[in-house]
């Protein structure tokens, strides 16, 4: 019988991301979630962030594909990170469940990456493409990015929804396409401001040179706050 064991064991698993330290007392990696509709450029943003930051940070990625390993395979094919730093979580046709309502598989993937590859600075958790209400649990990530794009319609910021309204950073991607699809970038910025108040918005075109820079800078600011033990979320600063 091993029941009611009198010894106090070190805990391998944290219950949630609420605890900022690992069992050995060191500070765990900062966890940033990236969500948004299908095709808005989440995986491309993750890939660009890895390329921009991998030389100075130890990074790992968790993908949440809806029914394939497409996103994980994209990252592997483009060799943005070594294979052991990429983990894919399966979501049973419900991506928002896996990042918000039942985060156990994602927490496990994050912890396994951290154990497998040694100390990490940053773990990016990419949601499967979903709808405008999909947000990450605060038990899974420390801050979240919501990625939309100009080609899906410039009324998305006006429509709002929890992703657009509450994400710590709203990324409006594919700005290079705006002239071709008739999207009004100034109007999107105004609508986003009305929905989000002082929360930041980044306009990106990943096709351009260093196009992910605004997002990378935002991540580095969050990481600096995390490392210093200050609040990570912009709203709390």
């Amino acid at each position: 019988m091993h029941l009611d064991h009198p010894e106090t064991f070190p805990h391998r698993h944290t219950w949630s991301s609420a605890a900022p330290t690992l069992p050995d007392g060191t500070r765990r990696a900062l966890r940033i979630g990236l969500g948004g509709p299908v095709g808005s450029g989440k995986t491309a943003t993750v890939a660009a962030l890895c390329r921009a930051l991998r030389d100075r940070l130890s990074i790992a990625v968790v993908t949440n594909d809806i029914y394939t390993r497409e996103d994980a395979d994209f990252l592997l094919r483009n060799a943005v990170l070594p294979p052991e730093r990429i983990a894919a979580v399966e979501t049973g046709a419900c991506p928002h469940t896996a990042i918000r309502d039942d985060i156990s598989a994602n927490l496990e993937a994050v912890e396994e990456l951290e154990e497998r590859t040694g100390p990490l600075d940053l773990v990016l958790v990419e949601s499967g493409g979903d709808n405008l209400t999909a947000t990450f649990s605060t038990g899974l990530v420390d801050a979240q990015v919501f990625v939309i794009d100009v080609a899906a319609g410039d009324d998305i910021p006006r429509k709002g929804g929890p992703g657009v309204t509450t994400a710590d950073l709203l990324v409006v991607n594919k700005t290079d396409l705006a002239p071709y699809v008739g999207s009004d970038l100034d109007g999107m910025a105004r609508d986003a401001k009305a929905q989000r108040g002082d929360l930041p918005v980044a306009f990106t075109s990943l096709r351009g040179e260093d196009g992910v820079r605004p997002v990378a800078d935002w991540v580095l600011e969050r990481l600096a706050a995390w490392t210093a033990g200050r609040p990570v979320r912009a709203a709390a600063v």
Binding site: H2, L3, D4, H5, E7, F9, P10, H11, R12, H13, W15, S16, S104, L107, E108
Partner: peptide, 17 residues
Amino acid sequence: RAARATWPAPELHAVAA
């Protein structure tokens, strides 16, 4: 993981360890 947070008990923690 869910059980340890919901109904914390020494024998659950022992299994995890």
